[in-house]
Nucleic acid binder design. Structure first.
Length: 490
RNA sequence: CGGGGCGUAGCUUAGCCCGGUAGAGCGCCUGCUUCGGGAGCAGGAGGUCGGAGGUUCAAAUCCUCUCGCCCCGACCA
């Protein structure tokens, strides 16, 4: 069956397409434990690129990495009422260790606020000890009922930032600063446009004062919450007696923030950029930016073209035009016994942004035959000046991918007068981001969710708001308090 | 937790209704010919038929129990 080689198309079944792509591009595989997965080298390589980019941004804004333990005393979860209510149902709890029942059960962290603010309290006496700006790269466990590769699994990898500040305003600035970093990362690295905005009370983090998020639109027009940044207020500081003496000698509770993005981003990348031929990885996140496929007919050519390919690779990787530490990431696929065509399909499935074919005719011309993964356009590129040409082309691909994703999102966004009936129809059909008014009542939010499965993804920041503010609530028709973006979400 | 589906070679599966030698495609190994978009031929390796029990001369097939996974819904990064 030749069809075995083709993916289910997005139009046929988006969900099946996603699963097949993740498995066949070898990003991840199911593990023997229900709901958990193995991240394979192809997927982990993308995550590593994400980690590096984000880590650099966190460091550049004064954050330091640390590591807090996996196990948290169960009693810690109970210290913040809203927090325990939010997380208790999805916690894995360890009751036995060393062959004995434990005095106090240990919770496998679903997130680390409790243990971290407990420790911060130990370390903080004076306002001079603040701010504390910490990040950790870790795994967390949330016992989800319904799981999906990368998007929702029992265990996932993430970073969680935790900070403590002297004032509310300082914490708020931090919260927004991180949100801006997430946005920049999504746009500039993932080539994934996002909205920024405030979560409603029902969607905010359990224990936070306010939650902000970045929201991206997937190719099925559903929203993906791709990152969150919380202003925790003094909720955890009070629960864990995280106090300090201020300049006037008064004791005060610190103001905290926490923020995170997870391996879910890999799923977001797939659903933003994947096509019916497989994955498309934006160059900046691609573990391999360029794959060179030498083409030969016989042993003599095999030796000659493979050598030429390796030479091209050397020239590319030796180039320091992007800086000494940011070399072009190039792979030569000289596998024997596999036809070049088969190799093309495989690298396209895996999403490598640029392919250089190098056969006798190309070598003759002192050029490679280059194929863009995103547009599938092909052109001959001369050896002469190839590193700079390739780097420029990769930049263009990165940019074009962002522009294409942005255009797709805008084409599927609806602003201005939409009736609730039209909205329902839209949500049951193609889906969209709908910018519409909200009266501010949780009951309307709940009703819409009940009837359409759509939720308020965020109350968008000013720059994403419509030029003409909506005047009535999408649901009840009463005067609108605020503009909201409504959509079904992952 | 409700609904649906599926467990047979590494993967996709046929066979099950109607019990009787476990088959195919892909992949893998060897060799030859190939090689500019998913190669061809020849040979070969690979199986506790998810597990346990039962019926039977005989079970992948029938019965009972059980385990697991996937998909769709309620909760969530």
């Amino acid at each position: 069956m030749a069809d075995d080689k083709k993916l289910t198309t997005r139009a046929e079944d988006f969900s099946a397409w996603y699963n097949e792509l993740v498995l066949r591009a070898e990003l991840a595989d199911y593990s023997p434990v229900k709901g958990s997965m193995v991240i394979r080298p192809n997927g982990y390589g993308i995550w590593e690129r994400m980690q590096r980019a984000l880590d650099d941004m966190f460091k550049a804004t004064g954050h330091q990495n640390a590591y807090f333990p996996l196990f948290i005393p169960e009693s810690f979860l109970h210290k913040e009422a809203e927090h325990v209510e939010g997380f208790a149902p999805e916690c894995a709890v360890v009751t036995h260790g060393g062959g004995k029942k434990l005095e106090e059960p240990l919770v496998v962290r679903p997130t680390s606020e409790t243990i971290i603010y407990y420790m911060f309290a130990k370390w903080t006496q004076s306002y001079r000890d603040l701010p504390i700006l910490i990040n950790q790269w870790a795994n967390v466990v949330r016992w989800e009922m319904r799981t999906r590769l990368f998007l929702r699994t029992l265990e996932f990898l993430w970073q969680e930032g935790h900070t403590a500040h002297v004032t509310h305003d300082e914490a708020e600035v931090e919260t927004r600063k991180i949100l801006a970093i997430y946005r920049r990362f999504a746009e500039e690295w993932m080539a994934m446009p996002v909205l920024t905005g405030l979560k409603t009370h029902s969607e905010k983090f359990a224990g936070a004062l306010r939650t902000y998020s970045i929201e991206a639109m997937m190719q099925d027009n559903k929203a993906l919450q791709a990152g969150t940044s919380h202003n925790l207020g003094q909720n955890f500081a009070k629960a864990f007696e995280l106090q300090f003496q201020d300049e006037s000698g008064q004791m005060a509770h610190a103001w905290n923030t926490s923020w995170g993005v997870s391996t879910r981003l890999v799923g977001g990348l797939v659903m933003t950029h994947g096509d019916d031929n497989g994955l498309r990885v934006p160059p900046r996140l691609a573990p391999i930016e360029i794959v060179i496929v030498p083409i030969w007919k016989n042993e003599e050519e095999k030796a000659r073209l493979t050598a030429a390919a390796l030479k091209v690779q050397d020239d590319l990787t030796a180039w320091t035009g992007r800086g000494a530490t940011d070399r072009l990431r190039v792979h030569v696929d000289a596998r024997d016994g596999m036809r070049s065509g088969a190799k093309y399909y495989e690298w396209e499935l895996r999403g490598v942004p640029l392919r250089f074919e190098l056969g006798p005719k190309d070598l003759e011309k002192q050029a490679v035959f280059a194929a863009r993964r995103d547009t599938r356009e092909k052109q001959s590129l001369a050896f002469d000046g190839l590193p700079a040409t390739a780097a420029a082309l990769l930049d263009r691909i990165q940019n074009d991918m962002f522009q294409a994703a942005l255009a797709r999102r805008e084409a599927n966004s609806v602003r201005g007068g939409i009736s609730y009936a039209q909205f329902k129809e839209l949500m049951e059909g193609a889906g969209a981001f709908v910018y519409a008014g909200w009266c501010g009542e949780a009951s309307c939010e709940a009703k819409v969710k009940e009837e359409t499965k759509a939720t308020i993804r965020c109350l968008p920041d000013a720059e994403f708001c419509s030029s003409e503010a909506p005047t009535t609530c999408l649901c009840c028709g009463k005067p609108s308090q605020v503009e909201a973006v409504w959509a079904r979400a992952y």
